[in-house]
Structures are given as C-alpha cells and as structure tokens.
Amino acid sequence: MTASPRIIAIENVTKRYLTSSGPVEALHEVSLAVGEGEFCTLIGPSGCGKSTLLGMLGGLVPLDSGRVLVDGQPVTGPDPRRVATVFQDAGLFPWRTTLENVEFGLELQGVPAERRRGVATELLGPLGLRGFAGKYPRELSGGMKQRVAIGRALAIDTKILLMDEPFGALDEQTRLLMGEWLLDIWRRTKKTVIFVTHSLQEALLLSTRIAVMTARPGRIKSVLEVGMDYPRLMESGELVALRAKLWSEIREESLRAMGGRL
C-alpha cells in the first residue's frame, strides 16, 4: 500500500439497477482505497460497473448499501469543490467557445467574470489550446474537445479528478499523445486521478495502481501496483511482464462477460 493518506475509501458498496427484465446487480460488495496523489485505474470487461463506481464517487449515482468516503466525508451528491469529472463524450456546450466552456464550473460557483476568465486563459497554454480560445466545439478536433473538457475539470481545481474513458473515442495515435500530455498535467498538479479505461496499454503507461474488476456483478478482483518511473516504455521488460499478468487477470473476466464463448 502507498504511504500517502487515503483520500478515497469505497467500503462494501453494492448497486442494483431495475431493468425491464428484472433487477441486475451492477456492483457487489466493492471495496477500494485510494491514496492522495495516486493515479488509480479501473479496468475490466464491458458492463462490469466501472462507470457506475465512478458515478458514485462523483455523486451522480446513489448507492444501495455500503459507504463512499471522499476526504473522510460521505458522498451525498455532486460536490464540485472536491471532485471534478471528465466524461467519455466530451460533453462540451456547443454554444460556448473554448474559453467559455473551460469557465463553466467557475461560473456556476459564482466566481466573478474577470477572475474566471483569467484562470481559464492561463489554462489554455498547458491545454495546448492557446489559439483556440474563441472557437466553438464544432471547430475543434476530437482530441482538442477532450482537452477542453479536461480543462473545464482542471479549472475548478479539485483535489480529485474522475475520468471516465476520456480517450475512448479517439484514434490510437491521438490517444497515446493525450496520455503523455495527461501524465504531464497530473505530475504538475499532484491531483488524485481515478481513471476508467478499456485499454491495457493506457492503464500500464499511466497508472500507479490498477484495479481489475470482475464481470457483472462487478467486484474488485485484484490490484496491481505499478512502481515504475515515468515516462514508461511499452517495450521495457518489466512492463511486458506486467502486461501479461494484467491480461491473464482480465482475459478470464472478459470471457465470462461474453458468455464463455470463443
């Protein structure tokens, strides 16, 4: 375990959804603790409840039983002063420019226009969007849109950043570059990141820890510590070994999620 104090504690969380074909258990007695400044990735087969778990941390999904503590406090609803979320679909407001989208969270909090403009403008540099302040989302590429969405989350300067497959819709090359960029941001801001992905490579390159989840109902199957320094090379022997280990853990669950065929 990491020595840093725990900032997130998920304790025995269970979640059922009511569907037309009866109740479905999405999460079963999930427990996980994350230390401050960690980059913790949740990985698992489709439908394992990763996004549900993230939604609970963000206060968007209520839980049936168990506890979720952020900074020692139970989560009761969205709390933009502690947690910011980035979604897979960038979710930019199409009628707002890049700058106005980045400002959104501060605007809701009633930060004066001049100050929030200053914060957003300063962020555009590290976001690589300096020339795009006045552009509308339809004028941006997929990677740029996702950087604006991340900028919007960074602008409210929370300790915790939740990322729900933020690069899932991007092509592989853009995805690799965005990963490198995100690592840089993370190391500079020292935020705690909870990251959901389907990509083994992405998980291995970015995370300090990887939590593998089982097929539905989702549980934490195992937690891998990745103690390597950054930047990491996919070709390094250590990572290749880790990849094989990670894949053997996930493969079984993915097979189960597909109904055991293949």
Binding site: L60, P80, A84, F87, D89, F93, F104, L108, I156
Partner: peptide
C-alpha cells in the same frame, strides 16, 4: 443531449442554473 445535463449536474448546477 443527456451528457450536457450530467456534466452540469456534476459541476453542481442548481435547478435554476
């Protein structure tokens, strides 16, 4: 777009906002 509503909720939007 439901995502926009979810984004606004996660950023703490009040009903009025």
């Amino acid at each position: 777009d439901r995502t926009l509503v979810t984004v606004a909720r996660s950023y703490g939007a009040t009903t009025w906002q």
